[in-house]
């Protein structure tokens, strides 16, 4: 599962049009990566597609950083 972060990073870079080195575990989607609420919805949909999982709405609300996303994805995939 070590590549989950890299796969998340790739999606974030593509969707938010941001530099790779800005996408760290602690980066906040909204505060650091310029996302808005609609971007977040789209990102989660891209994660679901990439990892073939379903992230429930109440979990989506708690995904604020790249690290949050990685943690939730790892939990759901395993």
């Amino acid at each position: 599962m070590s590549d989950v972060f890299e796969r998340v990073k790739k999606i974030v870079v593509e969707n938010l049009d941001v530099e790779e080195d800005k996408v760290t575990e602690s980066a906040s989607f909204i505060d650091d990566l310029g996302a808005d609420s609609l971007d977040l919805v789209e990102l989660v949909m891209a994660f679901e597609e990439e990892f073939n999982i379903e992230i429930p709405d109440d979990v989506q609300e708690n995904i604020r950083t790249v690290g949050d996303a990685v943690t939730h994805i790892k939990a759901h995939v395993s």
């Binding site: 609609l38 789209e42 949909m45 597609e49 379903e54």
Partner: peptide
């Protein structure tokens, strides 16, 4: 329906 983009309407 879950795969409909949030950017579709706007």
């Amino acid at each position: 329906a879950r795969k409909v983009s949030p950017f579709f309407i706007p």
